[in-house]
């Protein structure tokens, strides 16, 4: 007649001893060896604490409609400037040449964030004036939302110099984020939401490109304009303006941040527990072996024995 297993349950053996025995010391040592080494293994194998993490976000950039333009019109130092800062214009007097500026920001994927700035600047020039160099500063408001609510004023610096007198300059580039340190994982961050150029100043030193760039590059977070394919066309016709066509794209950025406490703990725990499981298994077998075979003497409280006694 066939035998069928109808039910099963584990049997619990209890091993008892007094406090100051070898068995107690053994169990205590096993406890330490089970829980301490996984920490050491996880930590010493590097990458235990997630010190920085990254995410991707397309910044919310808007052009502040602030421009500073400098053209070198001869190789002997003649220049023309224009700016949306009226105090600057007033300082420059006869060097100011007001251009015709057209700009628009387009949201090509209609996600509510501008994707690029399209801009043309037509600088009227006399036939005797020839452009050898262009410096164009564009100012933007830059916002990030996902982790740290980050806001700053930033700048795109378009620069091109040629030994040949130009007719127009076409640049296409990206406004890239430049981070020296990771951002925070939460909170509002307006450390750099300050004016790059003090437009209220009536002193020329406020508009010195050296000081502007120096203080700007001191920032922990800034932007730079990256372009690899500037096209400098020569042969400006009589009476024609010098034309700068710029496309400044606002690409999605990889942003470094410092993870918060719970994210740190979570990833540490995941690593620790996975190593701990191995140790638990191994030491469980060792302890079972030691106590089953009574290598260390203990009082065995076995349920089977009770049945016999009973």
């Amino acid at each position: 007649m066939a035998v069928v297993e109808v039910y099963s349950h584990p049997v619990l053996h209890r091993y008892k001893t007094s406090i100051c025995t070898k068995a107690t010391i053994f169990v205590f040592a096993c406890f330490l060896l089970t829980f301490i080494p996984p920490i050491l293994v996880a930590y010493r194998s590097q990458g235990f604490w997630q010190r920085e993490a990254w995410y991707r976000e397309q910044p919310d950039v808007s052009f502040k409609h602030q421009i500073l333009l400098l053209l070198q019109t001869s190789q002997t130092g003649d220049y023309l400037v224009w700016s949306t800062y009226q105090n600057f214009n007033q300082l420059q007097q006869g060097r100011v040449r007001v251009p015709l500026v057209k700009s628009r920001e387009e949201d090509s994927n209609r996600d509510g964030k501008s994707d690029a700035l399209q801009m043309t600047v037509q600088v009227p020039l006399l036939d005797t004036e020839e452009v050898y160099s262009v410096d164009l500063l564009l100012f933007f408001q830059y916002k990030l939302y996902i982790f740290s609510a980050f806001t700053m004023e930033c700048m795109a610096y378009l620069q091109h110099t040629s030994p040949l007198p130009g007719a127009d300059l076409t640049v296409v580039g990206d406004l890239r984020l430049h981070q020296k340190y990771p951002l925070g994982h939460t909170g509002r961050d307006t450390r750099f939401n300050t004016s790059i150029i003090d437009s209220t100043s009536i002193f020329p030193s406020a508009y010195d490109l050296r000081t502007i760039f120096e203080s700007y590059s001191d920032r922990n977070v800034s932007t730079n304009f990256q372009t690899y394919y500037p096209v400098w066309r020569t042969g400006r016709a009589t009476g024609q303006p010098f034309v700068i066509s710029a496309t400044v794209r606002y690409p999605e950025e990889t942003i470094l941040y410092k993870p918060g406490f719970w994210q740190l703990i979570k990833w540490g725990w995941v690593q620790y527990i996975s190593i701990l499981l191995v140790f638990l298994f191994v030491f469980d077998r060792i302890k079972t072996f030691v106590f089953e075979n009574q290598i260390l003497n203990t009082i065995v409280d076995s349920p089977t024995k009770k049945f016999k006694q009973g």
């Binding site: 409609h65 100011v96 040449r97 057209k102 700009s103 628009r104």
Partner: peptide
């Protein structure tokens, strides 16, 4: 032109 913010002037 439509859609393009413009500034210009003269002296």
């Amino acid at each position: 032109t439509f859609g393009e913010d413009t500034i210009s002037g003269c002296t």
